[in-house]
């Protein structure tokens, strides 16, 4: 890094160290979103601890620092809208009613629906109960074509539903990103791509991932609108995502929103993040979405600090209870290993 050039971590136009909203939002509603984000944070912190204790057999991937994006976006959705998230969307599931105890049981490989031990806690799909559709989340970007397919079904059936594809910055380089968005743009499908640009794809920086500065700079290839916004401000997330969702729902086609954010932990908990500079961490530390939100809440938000603290404590307790419940669940029986390969 050259000494003469000061490092800019975020375009000054996007930079926020405090947040505010023009919307009229009830205290209760504000608290719900805060609780959702805090619960996701508490879950992730607990998962990190369980990982270190060797209680989680595989790897663990956390969403710390990105909670405002999925909370803000999913808060705008109708129940029959679909969204797909990868590692970093736990709060979105909670907003849909997914229970922390089930999340924990899945991470611990227990025999709980819908995966019954067949899939990591990282992934989740249950249309009937939570309206979360199964998508292809193995290979990066492969959920963009399938998202276009869900959106195609909505369009063919003339349903005013949208599909939100949460996508990392790294996942905008594989061919599927192009193939899926190209198809969706041709057919004007209600697909909103929400890019969580968290500065890294695993260890790889944006400069090594793409020849453009922003993911949004790729949108002109599809002739679709795009916006860039600060992703750690839940209110800004709602403002920008609402435009995108309304646009897609009205039948105008796909929309791309790029939220700048930061992956506070490593790619997974096995990652020591040696490639992340102290300056960068410190910069984002001051812009942590929960910190910004908590400050807003206990100021203009109308809650006092004790009330905010009470939510924090309640979330930690919920997670402790969730782990206790999860640990008491059985593992899937080996006899079931070949079950459910084909649908009847």
């Amino acid at each position: 890094m050259s000494k003469s050039k000061p490092t800019i971590f975020l375009d000054p136009a996007l930079d926020r160290t405090s947040i505010a909203t023009d919307e009229t939002i009830s205290r209760d509603q504000l608290a719900v979103w805060y609780r959702t984000m805090r619960l996701a944070r508490a879950c992730d912190q607990k998962l990190a601890a369980l990982y270190r204790q060797g209680k989680i057999v595989g790897a663990v991937y956390l969403a710390i620092g990105q909670e405002a994006i999925c909370t803000g976006v999913v808060s705008l959705l109708n129940r029959d809208d679909y969204f797909s998230t990868v590692a970093r969307g736990l709060a979105g599931w909670f907003l849909r009613g997914v229970e922390p105890k089930h999340v924990m049981a899945r991470w611990l490989g227990r025999d709980v629906p819908p995966a019954h031990g067949r899939e990591l806690g990282l992934f989740f799909a249950d249309i009937q109960q939570y309206g979360i559709a199964p998508y292809h989340n193995g290979s990066m970007a492969s959920w963009i074509p399938s998202g276009a397919g869900f959106a195609l079904a909505f369009k063919i059936r003339k349903q005013p539903r949208v599909y939100i594809a949460f996508t990392g910055d790294g996942a905008t380089s594989p061919g599927d990103f192009y193939e899926g968005l190209n198809f969706a743009a041709i057919h004007k499908l209600p697909l909103v791509v929400v890019v969580e640009n968290n500065c890294f794809a695993y260890s790889t920086t944006i400069e090594k991932q793409m020849p453009v500065e922003n993911v949004a700079d790729r949108a002109p290839a599809f002739n679709i609108p795009s916006e860039i916004a600060f992703g750690n401000d839940i209110f800004e997330v709602r403002r920008v995502a609402k435009r995108a969702i309304d646009y897609a729902r009205a039948g105008n086609g796909p929309y791309l929103v790029e939220f700048k954010t930061f992956r506070v932990r490593g790619h997974g908990e096995h990652d020591d993040m040696g490639y992340v500079s102290a300056d960068l961490r410190e910069f984002w530390e001051k812009r942590d979405p929960l910190r910004l939100y908590a400050e807003y809440l206990s100021g203009a938000g109308g809650l006092d600090e004790a009330e905010v603290k009470a939510i924090d404590d309640e979330c930690v307790q919920t997670v402790e209870d969730a782990v206790a419940w999860a640990e008491a669940q059985p593992e899937a029986s080996p006899d079931s290993v070949t079950d459910r390969l084909f649908a009847p």
């Binding site: 074509p145 079904a153 063919i156 061919g175 193939e179």
Partner: peptide
Amino acid sequence: SGFTGAACGAAV
């Protein structure tokens, strides 16, 4: 890959 993935999503 694009239309195959789309077909899979539509099928679900």
